Amino acid sequence: MVLLEFSMTPSTREESKSPYVARILDVIDKSGLSYQLTPMGTIIEGDWAEVMAVVTDCYRALEVDCPRISAQIKIDYRAGPNSRMKSKMEAVETILGRKLST
């Protein structure tokens, strides 16, 4: 199972990137994959082909009117079932003995 964390941003003159982030999140949400939005990016979980297809779809959603796009991508693969986003957090919370703000 793959955990992929990424951010994708067009180089525009506008200070706020929220409209572009919303466009990308719409693609991610409609993909049906598990995801977690963070202030600095988004984590999606699935098999390799699924998560890479979502990244490609996000790029395609921006390229229509964005002549330059920057992307940062981190990938963690581990054989086994999904729900790693949840299980990784639960493991740390168990060690600490309390719930964390996530």
Rank of each mutant, 00 (worst) to 15 (best):
S16Q: 12
D76N: 14
S11V: 09
K88T: 13
K74D: 02
A49R: 13
C66H: 13
V92H: 00
I43G: 03
K30Y: 00
V51E: 01
L25Y: 15
Y77G: 03
I28E: 04
M89F: 11
A53H: 10
I44Q: 03
M8L: 05
T56L: 01
D26R: 14
K88E: 14
A49C: 03
R23M: 13
Y59N: 09
T12W: 06
S70H: 15
V2A: 03
I44F: 11
P67V: 10
R68Y: 06
T42V: 12
A91H: 01
V64K: 15
V64L: 07
R13I: 14
R13D: 12
D65Y: 00
E14K: 05
E63A: 08
D47N: 14
D47A: 00
G32K: 03
I43P: 05
V54S: 03
A53E: 15
T12Q: 09
E93S: 04
A53V: 01
I69R: 09
L37E: 14
L62H: 02
L3G: 00
N82Y: 14
T56K: 11
A91M: 00
W48Q: 08
D29G: 10
E93G: 03
R68F: 06
Q36A: 08
I28K: 06
S70M: 11
M8E: 12
K86E: 14
S83E: 12
R23P: 05
T38I: 08
F6I: 07
R78C: 02
P19F: 04
I75Q: 00
E45Q: 12
I24N: 10
Y20C: 03
K88P: 10
L25M: 07
V21S: 01
E63D: 03
D65T: 06
D47Y: 04
I69D: 09
R13M: 12
E5P: 10
K17H: 10
G32V: 13
M8K: 05
E5I: 11
T12F: 12
L3V: 11
D57F: 02
W48E: 12
L3A: 11
G32E: 05
Y35L: 00
Y77H: 13
C66D: 01
M40C: 07
P39D: 10
T42L: 07
K30M: 11
L4R: 15
S18V: 15
T9C: 02
T56Y: 00
S11P: 00
S31Y: 11
G46K: 10
I73E: 12
M52H: 05
S11F: 10
S11R: 12
Y77D: 05
S87D: 14
L33S: 06
I44C: 05
A53F: 06
